[in-house]
Design a protein around this nucleic acid. Sequence first.
RNA 1: CGGGGCGUAGCGCAGUGGCAGCGCGCCUGUUUUGGGAACAGGAGGUCGGCGGUUCAAAUCCGCCCGCCCCGACCA
Length: 567
Amino acid sequence: MKTSFLFGKTTRETPSEAQIRSHQLMVRTSMIQSVASGIYSYMPLALRSMQKIEHIIREEIGNAGGQEVLLPTLHPVELWESTGRSEAFGDNLFRTKDRRNRGLVLAPTHEEVMTNLVKFNISSYRDLPIILYQIQTKFRDEPRPRAGLMRVREFDMKDAYSFDINSEGLDVSYQKMKQAYKNIFSRCGLSTIPVEADSGAIGGKDSQEFILPAESGEDLVLSCPNCEYAANVERAEGTIPSPPTQDQLPIKEVATPNQKTIPGLCKFLNIEPINTLKALFYTADGEIVFVVTRGDLEVNEIKLKNLLKVSDLRLANNTEVENKGLIAGSAGPMGIKNIKLVGDSSITKGSNFVIGANKHDFHLLNVNYERDFVVDILGDITKTEEGHGCPSCGGTLKEIRGIEVGHIFKLGTFFSEALGCLYLNDKGEQLPVHMGCYGIGVGRLLAAAIEQNHDDKGIIFPISIAPFHIHLVSLNTEKEEVVHQSNALYKDLTQTGYQVLYDDRAESPGVKLNDADLLGLPIRIITSNRNFNNDCAEVKLRNEKDSKIIPIKDISATIENILQTTG
RNA sequence: CGGGGCGUAGCGCAGUGGCAGCGCGCCUGUUUUGGGAACAGGAGGUCGGCGGUUCAAAUCCGCCCGCCCCGACCA
């Protein structure tokens, strides 16, 4: 491809709307163009990269036994109502109607329609297991699209689904897919960590996300430097610090004028947050619940939601709190009636806590769990933080920010039961299939790859997903013989089978070299008057500092050698 | 949905009531060619939209729309 022919131009300046590096670089290289918030056009360079990613995905999912299909984007809304997910997705679902006023949705994912497809094409355990996948555009009306391709409203996703006769079979499919995912990311030249993830509203046993570490990532992972443990903060179950046990002292009421926060209270009483219990009020599916946790810890709302088995959870507003007669700032779990009390297990670790006295500007000292109060539900609802203990080996957990580039998930029988995707076993019994689902966002993966592979000059593409292998940059285009010989080299490299972007423009050397750095193709070949005078060209790798002067006749062998060693 | 910011040429921005501007990019010509060249000439604008105030509005007021960031939300 000649640069003079390539659709799209590089820009020197970054549009102000692009904040993160991958977004800036993708706009400056003319890979993508924004059409509306969270909606992008993909231009030739981006598309080439995405097609390479898709090719790797197809090979690896194929190796794992997956067969490719293509499902519709428009689904009848009834299909989504039959699993309750029309309501569950709510406003995230793009909805439309056809001319006969029938409700349709633009699919955000494809469990329903895939399960439905399989339902009509299996009948016996002999038909299973099956893994099907597609690469398909998804639509989600995200509340806040952001960060270029990281979170968008229309995006291409590889989604795979496994169908097995039982949970043991599902385990096997899941492991195959997990391995396929590892292969995909490593072939894309990316380092990712598999982390335990929350399994969300559908439930299901296992769920892992593949996180690509990056400062700009939306996800927070707690990871153990000493062992393999890593979990999304939504799910992480680190061990919390325990204060030394003390003899339980008698309760004492103290005046605490205007002390409504844990830090203020601690300063006033000269104690540490770990010596306090804090009260939070949530509205859980419409019911007010009183949540108590140790003062040094935060509540993990996902864990709370799972513990309470509710679908809608938010902090209660002032009116709701006051209507229940609760006194924010001085609320405590002692003497609470007619309100569900939920406690984090941390409240049993420690003694002689300070709690609110349920009386304005008063707190109680020396309150102990069981002796002085009990909760209706006790469980782990703590947000694990850096410094907490690793649940697996006892090491100290570290926080890592990252981008979720893949998610694998055991669904169990939720969809097969709801949609009647059943098979007959060898005893003639009718049973629901056990499903798993496995997603990779293609555009997000590309953005994440750039987020992980760039410097201050531009992208540094891993060769497996670079839009071209070689950037042939011809300087001195004013010299006819240089043009002639560059053309010949371009033709030669292309015929050998390399994908070459040939910068044949009559631009100044600075412009062309900076553009080459910006786009970041892995191998650069520079032709110029002075090199051709010696029958040489210059070869430089984007991720290396120095270049080599190579005789033209040896260029092919040099490139071949580079490709062999870099994969 | 809450908080904040922004909207003026393709991009980056200046312009607080009186002729719509600058830099980059773009077009033409001449020169130039190893790290974003020089000179000369040129094209390009419903100043996000609607309404109001005013002799006069990019500028002041009101409403709306869009975009970005933080949070909420997010299979």
